[in-house]
């Protein structure tokens, strides 16, 4: 496996991708731990995978399609909003985003 050097910059980038606000203590801890974990799993390089196809699913199932009535699982508004942090007039509410997408 590639010799990846973990620095704070890489860890920060991963945290950004995962939408995690990490403390500086967490950042430096992960920067230290991640290379350890990666070297612990490096033994996979001992196995030859040339010409081997990956297996993403073990069932062998193909072509599964919907088989349900329209709106069969529709939730009522009470059920939809009961776990929401903030709602307003049948909308989920969040802190204002400056721009539209």
């Amino acid at each position: 496996m590639s010799k990846f050097k973990f620095g704070l910059r890489q860890v920060k980038q991963l945290a950004l991708l995962m939408n995690l606000d990490l403390t500086s203590q967490e950042l430096s801890q992960f920067a230290k731990e991640m290379p350890q974990t990666l070297s612990a799993i490096a033994n996979l390089n001992e196995l030859d995978t040339q010409n081997i196809m990956p297996t993403y699913q073990t069932t062998g199932i193909v072509n599964r399609f919907q088989d349900e009535q329209i709106n069969e699982r529709n939730l009522d508004k009470k059920a939809i909003f009961k776990n929401a942090a903030r709602t307003h007039h049948d909308y989920f509410q969040i802190k204002g985003l400056k721009y539209s997408k």
Binding site: M1, S2, F4, V11, L14, A15, L17, M18, L20, L22, E26, F30, E33, M34, T37, L38, L44, L47, T49, I52, M53, P54, T55, Y56
Partner: peptide, 28 residues
């Protein structure tokens, strides 16, 4: 958080083949 960070790494551009894809081949 620790697990998510490592997972994001194994799927990221440049490392996907060496980690995630390699793992799925060994699964075979």
């Amino acid at each position: 958080k620790r697990r998510m960070m490592l997972g994001a790494f194994t799927l990221s551009v440049g490392y996907y083949d060496a980690y995630y894809l390699k793992a799925q081949k060994i699964r075979t």
